[in-house]
Amino acid sequence: MQKMRSLFAVPYALWLMFFVFAPIALIVGYSLMDINGHLTLTNYQDFFSSSNYLLLTLSSFWYALLITLCTLLFGYPMAYCLTHLKHRDLWLMLVILPTWISLLLKAYAFIGIFGIHGGVNQFLGLFGIPARQILFTNFSFVFVSAYIELPFMILPIYNSLVEIDSSLIFASYDLGANKWQTFTKIIWPLSLSGVKSGIQAIFIPSLSLFMLTRLIGGNHVITLGTAIEEHFLVTQNWGMGATIGVVLIIIMLLVMGLTRQRKGGS
């Protein structure tokens, strides 16, 4: 029996090996190599002494933060409302539905909506507001990214909200707490795990969004993803590209650490 069980683990172990550990090892390995394949630390030296890369890291971090905040601001109330609706499953499906559509398609749709002759400007035109440039602005980049990531914030929060035992909330009211107190003392702390997973699911991919920086941001917004793409495809400096990748992984670990779920309550 024991033997059988370990046999079942083989596919997962292989999976982890080939698709999780091996790629990370490769990235770290490449980051320690210069263009000629010699072992060196110059890539890291270059990264941390270049104002360009530090600026990029900062701006990636800043935009990822903005996007995460926006999704949280919109996502939490939406998830909260969802738990109080009658046909929850239907509404939940409507929230998930946009994730079935390719990201590129959605980006192209926004090009149409935000364009000079697009829907938003036509609508504003009804009130006599002249057409303005919406595409290629920081606003449009954050808006579209937040829209695309929103379901990944709503889902975990919704799940943690649904799991809250309603008797706890009744008890809170029984003991004389008002709505606000109930929310801050009971609901928010209990849904925190969902918020944390939501932040993880959004902050990390947002650090390296690079198709959107070009399509919606018109390359006015530049993130680390842009630099990685350039190093792998144009300059063929895989070492530097991998170094930026390692930096991203470290930032990711930091975010994971900060939002860690504490087991067995303190």
Binding site: I111, G115, I116, H117, Q133, L135, F136, R214, L215, G218, N219, H220
Partner: peptide, 17 residues
Amino acid sequence: IKAIAADEIKMYLADEE
């Protein structure tokens, strides 16, 4: 510079964006 882009330029110019 309004935007630095790739293939999309085709679409932007055709639509007069």
